[in-house]
């Protein structure tokens, strides 16, 4: 009886992981394509992390713009990351999650800037934090990224 329950549990968790691997890969591919389209559309807005404006610039307006997102990775990649954690080294499977989160946050920041009629975003900052993780489960559920900057209309 107990062996049956164990077997069902193993098959279920393997199934969930396999489903996560396939669905996660497809969803990621779609997300990256969407990001590429959004970035191309918003490429006209200049973005820098500089604090000071050039002296001869006189923007007609300036407002704070923010973009944020919470991103997670799939069950399969989390499992792979745990394996890599045993031996240490570069965890490439998490790098794509960070990349997606930062790019998504930037796109949302640029959308706000676009809505404000700006053509420049100055002093862009990116803030990252791990969120989630329960009392039993120490691991984070996802990462959150906040991008903030000052949107201005110049020229």
């Amino acid at each position: 009886m107990e062996a049956w329950i164990t077997l069902v549990f193993v098959v279920l968790s393997l199934g969930v992981t396999a489903f996560g691997a396939v669905a996660g890969m497809l969803l990621e591919r779609r997300h990256l394509a969407q990001l590429a389209r959004d970035e191309a559309e918003l490429a006209a807005i200049m973005v820098t992390s500089m604090k000071r404006l050039p002296r001869n610039w006189t923007p007609t307006s300036s407002t704070l713009v923010v973009g944020s997102t919470v991103m997670s990775t799939d069950a399969f990649r989390r499992w792979v990351a745990n394996l890599i954690n045993l031996v240490g080294g570069r965890i490439g499977v998490y790098e794509s999650m960070m990349e997606r989160a930062r790019r998504e946050a930037m796109v949302r920041l640029l959308r706000e800037a676009q809505a404000a009629g700006a053509n420049v975003v100055w002093n862009v900052r990116l803030e990252t934090a791990a969120i989630g993780g329960g009392e039993k489960d120490e691991r984070a559920k996802g990462i959150e990224v906040i991008a903030s900057g000052t949107a201005m209309r110049v020229g």
């Binding site: 969803l27 997300h31 919470v70 991103m71 997670s72 559920k141 906040i146």
Partner: peptide, 23 residues
Amino acid sequence: AAGLKNIVGGELKGYTELLVESR
């Protein structure tokens, strides 16, 4: 819902909402 979304990965919309409200 976020726990389920964790199976396939991607944006956790509920938490993004939380973040926007908090901000």
